[in-house]
Amino acid sequence: MQQDNMENKIKSVFDSIDDWDSKEAMSRKEAIWNSIAPDESKGKSKPWLLLALLGMSLLGAGWYIGNTNIFKKKSPQIEQNIKSEAANAHLMAIAQLESTLLSKKQQLDSLQKINKNLAFELNVLNSRMTQKEFEQMKSNTVYLKDTLYITEVKVETRIIEKRISDTVLVEVPILAELETISKVVDNENVNKPDLQQEAVKAEEVSKSVQFNFTETEYSNK
């Protein structure tokens, strides 16, 4: 590369900014314009605000003095003191705001410094990293998977009552029927009884014992 040729190339490279930087520049344009625009309303409002505050504080002080009967005895020295006290209060407030602003600026400076260092490191890394290394770095990236329990898992045993059936049927054989069946079984080998007759007999046997006391029967006895 010839010396002049190289210089021309460098000049052409640095004479303009690339597309990305250009977009970034355009995105900041309005913010920059707003920062350089003299805000007249702000400039005018500040002294007015200070004057108004000063006036109000003086009025307040005057009212206080009047109420406490010092007003009549007020000397020019006292008046001056009141004014200077109010002014001091404002000056102190301004000084406090200025110190806050200074600390904020210092914070911003340190952040900018860190940012610049990081940007520089990134530039150096970018310039030194070839495409191959970049691909290798990408392929070397290992993603780890794991399960993270945020709270402890609790296992609770619960007994839940559930009705399986509404009606429970319990079949209880009637005593008389049982006797009949046993008789049948006993006499099965001797003579085979007529089962139908037996069943009729069983039906005739009353299933409950009923006592009918009538006055007539009772008197007969």
Partner: peptide, 13 residues
């Protein structure tokens, strides 16, 4: 902006 960026090398500054 181009002149300035040439020297300060970052958009924030």
């Amino acid at each position: 902006y181009t002149i300035c960026f040439r020297y300060v090398q970052n958009h924030h500054d």
